[in-house]
């Protein structure tokens, strides 16, 4: 027996898990079922999705450009004074939003836009949030997010945007950061994460 074997044997005799009884098969089954129903798989990067996203961006840019540059009508009803400054976010999360542990440092590194807001409406797959605070990025008063199928379901809290609830949302290049970086404002630790990051 070598010195290494001796040392290893001695350490093993102090293993706190040596007396740990194996988990019951039904407990393991329950745990796995809970895992597979709680966590929803993020979709693989899809080129069709990319094409659609690009088309949507072009459309938004075109409409936005038109709205900004069009001549103001000299007559007719005036524009509302407090017209919302709106930004749009895509539902599928950014490609770099891997489900590793959320940290304030990574949040700060990944996010290019972060805000607190309240859902004021959900219509045909689009969630509208009234912004109460912008942590990072350009100041806006309203954010619209696509809520499609399961792609938003890794949000902290219930997993989906719900009317009337407050959310903390971070995004990168227009895609929401999930996996513990966005969700209901009351989700444990999320507010602290934002306070620490920004």
């Amino acid at each position: 027996m070598t010195d290494d074997d001796d040392l290893r044997s001695r350490l093993r005799r102090t293993d706190p898990a040596a007396g740990l009884t194996p988990a019951a098969p039904e407990d393991i089954s329950n745990l796995l079922e809970k895992t597979m129903t709680t966590a929803v798989v993020r979709p693989r990067f899809d080129t069709r999705l990319l094409t659609m996203a690009a088309a949507v961006i072009v459309l938004i840019a075109a409409v936005g450009g038109f709205l900004v540059t069009r001549p103001q009508p000299s007559s007719g009803p005036s524009q509302p004074v407090a017209a919302p400054v709106t930004t749009e976010l895509a539902a599928p999360p950014a490609a770099n939003a891997k489900c590793i542990e959320p940290t304030a440092a990574k949040l700060k590194e990944y996010a290019d836009f972060a805000f607190a807001g309240t859902v004021t409406g959900i219509s045909r797959g689009t969630v509208t949030l009234a912004v109460t605070r912008v942590y990072l990025g350009k100041p806006v008063t309203e954010v619209r997010v696509a809520q499609e199928g399961y792609s938003s379901e890794t949000l902290m809290g219930s997993g989906r945007f719900e009317n009337g609830l407050d959310y903390l949302v971070a995004s990168n290049e227009g895609g929401i950061l999930v996996c513990g970086y966005s969700g209901e404002a009351t989700a444990p630790g999320l507010q602290e994460l934002y306070d620490e990051a920004f």
Partner: peptide, 18 residues
């Protein structure tokens, strides 16, 4: 997942208990 997870559960339980 169901094929590999029981072994992972057992090993990670021990890892964490330590």
């Amino acid at each position: 997942f169901e094929a590999v997870a029981p072994a992972v559960v057992d090993a990670v339980r021990r890892y964490l208990a330590r």
